[in-house]
Design a protein around this nucleic acid. Structure first.
Length: 411
DNA sequence: AAAAGAGTCAACCGCGGGTCC
DNA sequence: GGGACCCGCGGTTGACTCTTT
């Protein structure tokens, strides 16, 4: 069959396709197939060139196309494929049924590229933007060495840098509250909407809280398991906890008499013999001891779309820390103790964590790929370490007294 | 409320490779 | 072998939408 040239200068229509045109093209191709594209427009009654028809069909009209935003899994596939294939969008698209090369190309250019850059990764080479920089070496060094102490120190330095910059949103709320809701807006920028949960929260947390919301920090970089490529962990699933936008931070004092009946209106009395109340799950907690909560809590939380948040909460008053019986909404808690014994497997998560030395809480162990991805997070726990400081796991986070929460929500 | 800027995405353009005559 | 044509691909454009000021 001799195809008609679609490159000849004819009076073809350009621009967006109307619903009528779509209907004509769809019904024609479904009935006759496309055959020679250059012949399609004439036969379908369209004032378009064959090329335009082909594009419209492939990218928009053909059956089986997946609409909507890319999932994190798709995003990971794209990035992984790009490492190998580069800008061969059609080949990348072949790995994502229902997605078109054009769509992937657009997604890459408008979204992934930017994210990778912000994470310090060159989107073309998939390597650190400046591999020779001391900063990168320092980062890698911290990841490799990665004791909690070192990480804390590193994080603290980073925070100081941020605090001294203007890249810092500072909100002070003189009201008492124990629960902070963070609502994200848009894809990757956080705008903090700090609000008190109704009820006990406002009554019992009588500290003046200061909340810092630090956008554009990419702690996922810091949490790479030893030896893993950035790609393997640069995209992660967030826990339901984070996906809900709730960032549980504080535990408030409650009158112990109200332990079993606590509700949102029960906590108007502050009692130093505190039992805990979780602002996240709204559950009553029991306690065997109270500890002084560190003056400053830092929470790292992995959020959606490769961005990370940090909430820095300072409390002028001492807020009691209560030994938890809590669990996350999946009933899982990691425990890393066994990892320090060279046995970091899914069995590294114990139901009865003993007090352990801080140095045992090495970060790679805690977030080891083996331990995490296949792990049964059965445990919650807290206790004092050998040096008297406390540690704890709760809601997928590792606490240490040195002001660190490490959100493991991406597990 | 309006303007400016940024982001998104459908569509266009040009090129290279393959096929046909 | 060479020209004409088609197809598919990747880069780019520009209209539209959303966000910020």
């Amino acid at each position: 069959m001799v195809c008609h040239s679609c490159c000849q200068k004819q009076n073809f229509k350009k621009g967006l396709w109307s619903p009528e045109e779509d209907k004509k093209l769809r019904s024609y191709i479904l009935k006759y197939g496309h055959g020679c594209w250059s012949a399609v427009p004439k036969r379908a009654g369209l004032q378009r060139c064959g090329k335009s028809c082909r594009l419209r069909w492939i990218n928009y009209l053909r059956p089986g196309l997946k609409k909507g935003a890319f999932s994190l899994q798709e995003e990971k596939i794209i990035i992984d494929a790009h490492v190998v294939l580069g800008n061969r969008w059609s080949q990348i698209a072949s790995q994502l049924p229902g997605r078109t090369d054009n769509e992937i190309k657009n997604f890459w250019n408008s979204c992934i590229k930017k994210k990778l850059r912000l994470m310090g990764i060159d989107p073309n080479t998939h390597r650190p933007l400046n591999e020779n920089s001391g900063q990168v070496r320092e980062l890698e060094s911290n990841i490799r060495a990665s004791s909690v102490d070192q990480l804390d120190s590193f994080v603290a330095n980073e925070l100081l840098k941020l605090q001294s910059s203007n890249n810092f949103i500072h909100e002070t709320n003189g009201n008492d509250y124990a629960s902070i809701s963070l609502e994200t807006q848009g894809n990757n920028m956080e705008s903090g909407i700090f609000e008190n949960d109704a009820g006990p929260v406002t009554a019992t947390c009588n500290a003046e809280n200061t909340v810092y919301l630090l956008p554009k920090l990419f702690f996922s970089d810091w949490l790479l398991p030893t030896g893993s490529a950035p790609l393997e962990t640069s995209i992660f699933e967030v826990s339901d906890l984070n996906a809900s936008g709730k960032l549980p931070v504080q535990y408030c004092q409650l009158d112990s008499e109200l332990l079993n009946t606590c509700s949102r209106n029960d906590s108007t009395t502050s009692n130093p013999n505190a039992a805990g109340w979780s602002s996240e799950s709204d559950e009553c907690r029991t306690t065997s001891e109270s500890m002084a909560w560190p003056d400053q809590l830092v929470q790292y939380t992995a959020a959606e779309q490769l961005t990370s948040h940090i909430n820095l909460v300072t409390s002028e008053d001492s807020v009691s820390w209560n030994t938890p019986t809590f669990h996350d909404n999946k009933g899982r808690f990691p425990h890393a103790n066994l990892c320090s014994e060279g046995n970091c497997t899914e069995h590294s998560f114990l139901s009865d964590p003993p007090p352990i030395a801080r140095e045992d809480l090495s970060v790679p162990s805690t977030i080891s790929a083996n331990g995490i991805h296949s792990g049964e997070f059965l445990d919650d726990g807290s206790g004092r370490n050998n040096n008297g400081s406390f540690y704890g796991f709760q809601n997928g986070m590792l606490f240490t007294e040195n002001s660190t929460f490490m959100d493991l929500g991406f597990l």
